[in-house]
């Protein structure tokens, strides 16, 4: 490929990337306009909360429990070197509440929920089901996008709390089997170091992650093209882009919360 051809490809890719960012921005703004306009599709919202939240309980629970247990097990040798295994509940609870629960919930949801939204809407786009709504004088954006984004924004923070609880149970099981610590002592130690700022930051993260997973999945699916290939691409890019944005948000929110922590 000649230098001129390379330059042409680069310019074309850059144009495409800038156009995607602009279209994403327009989609983001449209969400807020549509969310506050007209009648809310409550039935669909409840259905999506059930699909995103309730149907993820087993997966999030299992992952959270294993994360809590393994993190405790891996941290023990380091603390044991200083004879500080009694600090395990505090260490684990800080890690789970401040970082792990929100991140694990978000990453699992990006894979499960994001890909499912991307594929479902992508399939509806390429089979003209979205066009069929439009020609029936129904607003497909309100029915499909607003409900799914709101559902993921509402349910992912709830899943995060559930993941925290189950993660701490996993940690307790490990501590109980090794140190014989009672449940009351574990809870006392675990919550000793947790502040409202920690909880608030976790909720803010989960809300941001939930919104990101919903809006990215919807954007990719709603704008899918090129038949079945487009559906696969929409599902795949929903996961990849959501995960990328989740890590960027994690960095920003941690920086902001550390600023308030002083």
């Amino acid at each position: 490929m000649s230098a001129k051809q390379k330059e042409h490809v680069f310019t074309k890719n850059l144009d495409h990337a800038l156009l995607s960012v602009y279209n994403g921005y327009k989609f983001f703004i449209r969400f807020f306009v549509e969310a506050f306009r007209g009648r809310m599709e409550f039935q669909e919202l409840v259905k999506q909360c059930y699909a995103i939240g309730y149907k993820s309980l087993v997966l999030i629970g299992l992952t959270g429990f294993i994360t809590g247990m393994v993190f405790t097990k891996q941290s023990r040798p380091s603390l044991a070197e200083f004879g500080a295994t009694s600090w395990l509940p505090s260490l684990v609870s800080i890690a789970i509440v401040r970082a792990l629960a929100a991140l694990v919930t978000a990453l699992i949801s990006a894979g499960k929920v994001g890909s499912s939204i991307g594929a479902e809407l992508g399939s509806m786009r390429v089979t003209e089901q979205i066009d069929a709504m439009e020609v029936s004088a129904i607003n497909p954006f309100k029915f499909l996008v607003v409900t799914r984004v709101l559902a993921s924004t509402i349910t992912i923070p709830l899943l995060m709390f559930y993941c925290t609880l189950v993660g701490l149970m996993g940690a307790f099981l490990n501590v109980y089997l090794n140190e014989g610590t009672s449940a009351v002592a574990f809870i006392e130690k675990a919550f000793e170091q947790i502040t409202f700022l920690d909880l608030g930051t976790s909720v803010a993260k989960a809300v941001a992650y939930g919104f990101t997973i919903g809006i990215v999945g919807c954007y990719q699916g709603y704008n899918a093209t090129k038949g079945t290939e487009g559906v696969g691409k929409a599902a795949n890019s929903s996961v990849v882009i959501s995960m990328f944005l989740i890590f960027i948000e994690e960095v920003i929110i941690v920086q902001v919360s550390n600023y308030f922590r002083g």
Partner: peptide, 25 residues
């Protein structure tokens, strides 16, 4: 508008497909 591939809503029954535009319009 009758679509070439019918464009029925996959996740809904026939009854729900028909009710969907009716109750919203």
């Amino acid at each position: 508008f009758s679509f070439q591939n019918s464009a029925l809503y996959d996740s809904m029954t026939v009854r729900e497909n028909l009710e969907f535009p009716l109750v919203r319009n």
